[in-house]
């Protein structure tokens, strides 16, 4: 008996313009939904605020990567040129924080970029092979010029009928039930 209900992933409404989806997102946020999302073909500026999405904490990954890179650079140049195999070259010191600084600098940037790049995909749970939204009949146009608002069935406020009428009240078109 529960097979049918468990299969529902959520309700999806389509919007044609950026202002329409922006105002719809504000109302979904104000209605207290938590497990919901908007699918847009490009980053819509201001939509984070309308959805109540907080500023991304990704810069922490960048910082961690950068610090790790700088320390790797310092340790590496010191270990190789001053500890493991010290060579006298031009009467210069075996190690100093100054002359190998270009190496430290580049490794700081390299590791910070790794932190940012991989952090972005980890934060977003990507790569991911499949997601229920891919089954939506208009998903291809959501990558083109349509905006989709999804309210997941797992949200405590979700109710198939009430949410359906709520979404159509917001001006959403083509309201579709998608399955898990």
């Amino acid at each position: 008996m529960d097979t049918v209900e468990k299969k529902i992933f959520g309700l999806v409404a389509a919007f044609k313009t950026t202002p329409a989806v922006y105002h719809a997102a504000e109302k979904v946020r104000d209605a207290g939904f938590k497990k919901w999302d908007v699918f847009t073909p490009f980053p819509v500026h201001g939509l984070d605020h309308a959805m109540g999405v907080k500023r991304s904490t990704l810069p922490r990954m960048t910082l961690c990567g950068g610090l790790l890179g700088f320390m790797t650079g310092c340790l590496m140049t010191w270990y190789m040129n001053a500890y493991d195999y010290p060579l006298i070259v031009g009467g210069k010191p075996f190690w100093s924080p100054i002359f190998p600084f270009p190496v430290h600098y580049e490794l700081t940037i390299l590791f910070a970029a790794f932190g940012t790049f991989f952090g972005m995909f980890i934060y977003n749970g990507l790569p991911r092979h499949h997601h229920p939204i891919f089954d939506h009949p208009r998903f291809a146009s959501a990558m083109d010029d349509t905006f989709l608002v999804l309210i997941e069935a797992e949200d405590p406020h979700f109710d198939a009928e009430k949410t359906h009428s709520f979404l159509s009240g917001l001006g959403g078109q083509d309201i579709t039930l998608i399955e898990q």
Partner: peptide, 10 residues
């Protein structure tokens, strides 16, 4: 999938 929560991190 163009999720706005992803765009935010992106």
């Amino acid at each position: 999938r163009g999720s706005n929560r992803h765009w935010s991190n992106y």
